[in-house]
Design a protein around this nucleic acid. Structure first.
Lengths: 338, 338
DNA sequence: TTGAAAGCGCTAACAT
DNA sequence: ATGTTAGCGCTTTCAA
């Protein structure tokens, strides 16, 4: 079923059908009704591919979400969506695997959907000039930025928290509570990504406060998964390492850690404090409610759109925005037991 | 940049470029290399819309995921994806809001992507013949089925758990533990959806075991959100209703309920047992680990694909598969305190 | 107000 | 092995 069929059935020309379908004003009411009737009757839906092919440019922004599981992105996405719509853009979202390359995907989407701009949600921290070459519309990184690649700052925008600083603050908070042996739970210390940045923040805090770096206090879980975090925490405690606080670099890791500590007979926060980063809604409802640094999810999304919109409207330049995390008091931290 | 440009730059014809791009064998090695070089150099990506337009039919299955937040769908999606790929299909996933209509969306996607079939993940339970009319390829409902609409069974397939039965089993389990006052936490009792079905299961269990239905034990939260569930539970306890167990119709609701009970000075499970349905990975890691009926997420996804594949290969007919839930022992239930 | 026709970028006959 | 060409379904001039 094509507009040709509809035209024939309605006894008009294809251009008239097209006009009706696109709400052009210059069609007489009776003809319009007639065409619409046929369209309805046959449940006709115009072929999007053909439309895309012929329309010079739309007003669509592509959003690529990397990694399928993380609930952290959910509120960000909502914010992006509503901000986009309120500015008259339409949004086209795709979710991809961690294993897929978001830039390749973005480039394809750009062609397929005639995108005007792209928002990369949760991607790599190590873009090179070569990698972004296929992209020919402006893009902004939301929740990540290019700290490990050679892509110049003026080639892209980003909106993130300062990951290194956030980790520093988390450790600082624990230190000021009185903790002197602070364990760290993270997937890897050299992933050229989040983990590495937050690891640096942890190290800097130790240094600042004159605490020794103790490798036996580092729990490496290998992934951002709950099961791995759980196992790594069990192993950490099982190794005999002694610590009064555990800083997990994400809320999810922290959640699994609390259970593991509990299993080992350690009460949180009485025997061991636990702190996270992210501020998932869910971790507000676990027991004990997690003390964490909340990322300004809605703001991350909103400002990404604002940046992109500025770029598209002509005036704007590529910028890099660092947003503050917000301390959320839970019940998972306390002064050390002595 | 189009294949025409590439052809000119490489000094060949457009069909040669097309052949190279589509890995056709009948291109000489030097020409292929030459074309590829130009393609690389200019980061050329063929226009998907044009391809879609001209290709008679692909091998793509569309997946529409309704509602953006629920982590329950994550493992299902992974299963769908891998099963699809292993059978030689490619997948095209779209996520839509609760507020959007998945069928309209599916119909558009069907045209746009030339889909061969559709998997609806987490949609409505009340389709009518009229609503599905725009779809012209077979579709299967994953995690929902058409118990409230007039769409005949032979017009679609479905793979779900028996929601009514699962709720029954949850209550049965609590009953056998000794509980006689079992509260219920759910968004609504008449949403023509999940909530209503599970409500029926709850009622049937009460009836079977000779327990009176007590409206004051029904906690209505209005949504599947954590905050609403938390408030509803506080209100339920605050109302003075007396119960020794709470059955929340989803794991997320159960999680928020546990926190609310704790806030009210009720220990779970000593003072009040809590049980959920879904079996989220996360609720295995909260304290107390949630006792729940686990939906066979991977199997739900896998069988959806198998059904669809059977339909497409000619032989299959529309079928409706009910999968069993699996009891997962946590630590959130116990015999009543007396 | 309506219709005829060109062309979007690509693939696949068909021709060479 | 490579080139020429006819559409795919649609929108949009341009003419009537």
């Amino acid at each position: 079923m094509t507009i040709k069929d509809i035209a024939r059935l309605a006894g008009v020309s294809v251009s008239t059908v097209s006009r009706v379908l696109n709400n052009h004003p210059d069609v007489s009411a009776p003809i319009r009704a007639q065409v619409l009737a046929v369209v309805e009757e046959h449940h006709f839906i115009p072929n999007t591919a053909a439309r895309k092919l012929v329309q010079p440019q739309g007003n669509t922004i592509g959003v690529i979400r990397s990694g399928n599981g993380n609930p952290f992105y959910t509120p960000i996405l909502s914010a992006i969506e509503s901000e986009l719509y309120s500015r008259g853009y339409s949004m086209c979202m795709r979710q991809i695997h961690y294993s897929e390359d978001e830039l390749t995907y973005a480039a394809q989407l750009e062609r397929a959907e005639r995108l005007r701009g792209i928002i990369l949600l949760g991607g790599r921290f190590d873009y090179t000039v070569e990698m972004v070459a296929p992209l020919s519309v402006p893009f902004v990184c939301c929740t990540h930025t290019n700290l490990f690649g050679d892509l110049p700052q003026d080639r892209y925008s980003s909106v993130t928290i300062d990951d290194e600083e956030a980790a520093y603050r988390a450790v600082e908070f624990l230190y000021h509570l009185g903790h002197r042996s602070i364990a760290l739970l993270l997937p890897s210390t050299n992933d050229h990504s989040l983990g590495e940045l937050r690891f640096h923040g942890y190290c800097r805090a130790l240094e600042t406060f004159g605490l020794p770096f103790d490798p036996s206090l580092i729990g490496l879980c290998g992934s951002y998964g709950l099961a791995d975090a759980y196992r790594a925490t069990l192993a950490l405690v099982g190794s005999g390492a002694s610590f009064t606080a555990l800083f997990a670099i994400s809320d999810l890791l922290a959640t699994a850690a609390i259970r593991a500590l509990h299993e080992k007979g350690l009460h949180v926060p009485r025997d061991c404090s636990v702190m996270g980063i992210d501020g998932l809604e869910l971790t507000e409802y676990i027991l004990p409610p997690l003390t964490t640094l909340v990322q300004p999810a809605a703001e991350l999304g909103r400002q990404s759109v604002q940046l992109l919109s500025g770029l598209l409207d002509g005036g704007g330049e590529h910028r890099h925005i660092l947003l503050e995390t917000d301390f959320r008091a839970g019940a998972s931290v306390a002064p050390p037991p002595w």
